[in-house]
């Protein structure tokens, strides 16, 4: 018996080892990137993987003032906030209609939206490029905002309809008997009841928009319109020649901090939202 316990304990430690190693593999590069943003360039060369000798904010000031990061943060904020709001304005009424007001063709429309989640969007990006050009929305962050919002519609409708189906119908019915218009029901009854689902969708969309890179790369051209991802990528490509690694790390840190903060607050919601979106989608 004792021997069995002993081997049991060893096996538990042995199984923990890979878990600990993988935690290190995740944490170390991120921590090191954030620490690197406080190092001078000389220090990055002499001591790339250790702690900084002193914490200097020079890299952050530099990237903010001289490397266009201020513009990138500003543009990304606009795209993220407006995009997330626009997605809600478009997705909530449609989700409500598709889930609660069954009509002929509602399943067809629902399936049309959902199947768009599986289709590779690259093919559409070429015509979209010329479409935006014709609307004078190319190289325009508001044009990008619309594209972002529409691109997250299928996911948002999917999550919101699932969520709405779990809300009991009694409240809407009694409000309708009291003479409330369907518009009022949607705005004053459904939206507050669905708030938890709406928050989940909004956080997921906001993270998506904040992080997005490729559509911004195609649809934006001038540096004053760059979103944060493009601005960081620009510094990274320059760093191959300028070796301004400290500034690069500072700009990466700026890009990741809002995501870390959101994750710290909404960790359960985010991981649940993403897993469920993947399982059912």
């Amino acid at each position: 018996m004792e021997q069995r316990n002993k081997s049991h304990i060893t096996s538990r430690i042995l199984i923990r080892l890979p878990l600990i190693l993988w935690s290190l593999a995740v944490l170390y590069p991120i921590t090191w990137m954030i620490l690197g943003s406080f190092k001078s360039n000389a220090e990055i060369y002499s001591n790339p993987w250790g702690l900084p000798a002193s914490f200097s904010f020079q890299n952050f000031i530099d990237s903010w003032q001289n490397y266009n990061i201020d513009v990138g943060v500003f543009n990304s904020l606009i795209v993220t906030v407006l995009g997330a709001l626009l997605t809600l304005v478009l997705a909530i009424p449609t989700s409500y209609a598709l889930e609660r007001l069954k009509f002929r063709g509602s399943t067809l429309i629902f399936n049309l939206y959902i199947s768009a989640m599986m289709i590779p969007m690259v093919l559409g990006w070429i015509p979209l490029f010329f479409l935006l050009m014709r609307f004078n929305l190319l190289d325009n962050i508001f044009g990008l905002t619309i594209v972002y919002a529409v691109s997250q519609l299928p996911f948002s409708i999917f999550v919101l309809t699932t969520f709405l189906s779990s809300i009991p119908k009694e409240l809407e019915e009694s409000a309708a008997i009291d003479g409330m218009s369907p518009y009022g029901i949607l705005l004053k009854i459904i939206t507050p009841l669905a708030m938890s689902g709406i928050i989940t969708v909004t956080i997921m969309n906001a993270i998506q928009f904040w992080n997005e890179y490729f559509m911004a790369l195609i649809f934006l051209q001038s540096r004053e319109n760059y979103t944060l991802g493009l601005a960081v990528d620009f510094i990274s490509r320059e760093a191959e020649y300028t070796n301004a690694w400290g500034t690069l790390f500072a700009s990466l840190t700026i890009a990741i901090i809002p995501v870390i903060i959101l994750y710290a607050i909404f960790q359960r919601r985010i991981s649940k939202g993403m897993t469920e979106g993947a399982i059912k989608g």
Binding site: I207, N211, V232, L252, V259
Partner: peptide, 10 residues
């Protein structure tokens, strides 16, 4: 939930 830009550059 990290940006592919950050992952790629890192």
């Amino acid at each position: 939930i990290m940006s592919v830009v950050v992952i790629g550059i890192l």
